[in-house]
Design a protein around this nucleic acid. Structure first.
Lengths: 233, 233
DNA sequence: TCGGACTGCTGGTCTGACCAGTAATCCACA
DNA sequence: TGTGGATTACTGGTCAGACCAGCAGTCCGA
């Protein structure tokens, strides 16, 4: 028996019940048996159906909650999250549900996005701008028709980051955006008026198109300040 | 009651016990009261110390387990993970070994850190500054003695981010720092002269201490520009 | 028609219990 | 003397049952 190298035997893996449940629910969502917004069975019912205790179910739901896979609303139930899950810095997880976190996040966004919009105004290609223009127009017509999706407003910001051509900035903006959505979901905050947001987006795009980095940055700042005012109420 | 605009009231947010526990333990680890490899008190003991039920403790540990913050070994106990979780955006992973990535990263750092240093100069408490001062002095004497660790230069930047009091900024800076180290490792780039770096750090700290946000930002920019010159060289 | 009480659901928490695995100790037997 | 097997006290894993507070639909009376 050597101490080095691959052992012939694998350690017996006693899986934890809660881990199995996490995987089962994730599979159900992946297979689209559970759609975003769907309500899961109650904890008691789930425990019964799985022949496990409610405690194990709760441990699983706690993990799925952290992962952003589900949203738990006391008194109502547990629902499949509408915003797709993505990793959020572990050290920030427990802060997501606090309003002050939204303000911290906004401060960080302001720093990052001021730089982004400045670069975008200098670097965006004509193709980039046309793409952004098309997307913005589509959102405007959709809104006029009464349709509006919450996550969509953020898309403009991430698209803006994309066209700096800097993948690090784009990645950071996506992360901030995801945290933004999840935190807003957890804090139960209503989104800002989509009309106002679209107006700001339109102005930013104009400034970027005209290659006016300073003006673009100014409008961006007004946009985020406006959002902050909403949060601070 | 209008449907548009900011509501006067915010939904009351009752935090979950397990969430509090998650944060407490993370804080203890961040404050280094708990070191990697340390054994946490048993679940029962923990519950008793926190005046909560074992179930709540378990839900918290389950989350920390999933985050990779702790490792749970049945029959033995729960331990602080030795390798702290350090997620690097999957979409960036393949770029780490390219030199252009270092430049992109540096551009992103410049945007972020200019904002950070500006805030730090306005917000840092005297205690914060003393801590930073001590750390810097220690590095200076170590360098004079011929000792120098590569990752250490970054520490100054992350510490600076910490004392903005904004956990989002601190987290983002840590991420950028990790990518920086890993990318520099992969590209095989030699670090900038530690002497130069320390001089810049000393200047930045002075500006922050004197509450001169603009000056601090200017030095920071020179520091990063200097690093860029090294990379492009 | 409207508003409040009622009722049954939900998740949040606590308690106490038992199981299985670890590890250190102790003791009997070779 | 030394080795190996019980003992024992811990650990996390799981279960069951209970109570609370908040949500929502129902029903009834003013």
């Amino acid at each position: 028996m050597t101490t080095q190298g691959a052992s012939l035997f694998q350690p017996v893996r006693r899986s934890r019940v809660s881990t199995d449940i996490v995987r089962q629910i994730q599979d159900l969502i992946a297979a689209e048996h559970l759609q975003p917004g769907d309500r899961l069975p109650g904890e008691r019912e789930l425990a019964d159906a799985l022949s496990v205790s409610r405690q194990s179910v709760r441990e699983a739901l706690r993990v799925l909650d952290y992962l952003g896979v589900v949203v738990v609303r006391p008194g109502e139930g547990t629902f499949v999250a509408t915003t797709p899950p993505s990793p959020v810095d572990a050290s920030l997880y427990s802060l997501l549900s606090e309003r002050s976190f939204l303000l911290d996040l906004l401060e960080a966004r302001r720093i990052l996005e001021e730089g982004i919009v400045h670069l975008a105004a200098r670097r965006a290609t004509r193709d980039d701008l046309d793409t952004l223009e098309t997307a913005l127009a589509a959102r405007e017509t959709a809104l006029a028709a009464g349709k509006h999706d919450v996550a969509g407003d953020l898309t403009f910001h991430t698209q803006l980051a994309e066209l700096t051509g800097n993948p690090v900035l784009a990645s950071a903006m996506r992360h901030f955006g995801e945290m933004w959505l999840r935190s807003r979901e957890k804090t139960g905050r209503r989104p800002t008026s989509p009309h106002k947001a679209l107006q700001f987006h339109r102005q930013i795009l104009q400034a970027v198109r005209r290659r006016q980095p300073v003006a673009a940055r100014r409008v961006l700042r007004r946009h985020l300040d406006d959002m902050r005012a909403d949060i601070e109420g």
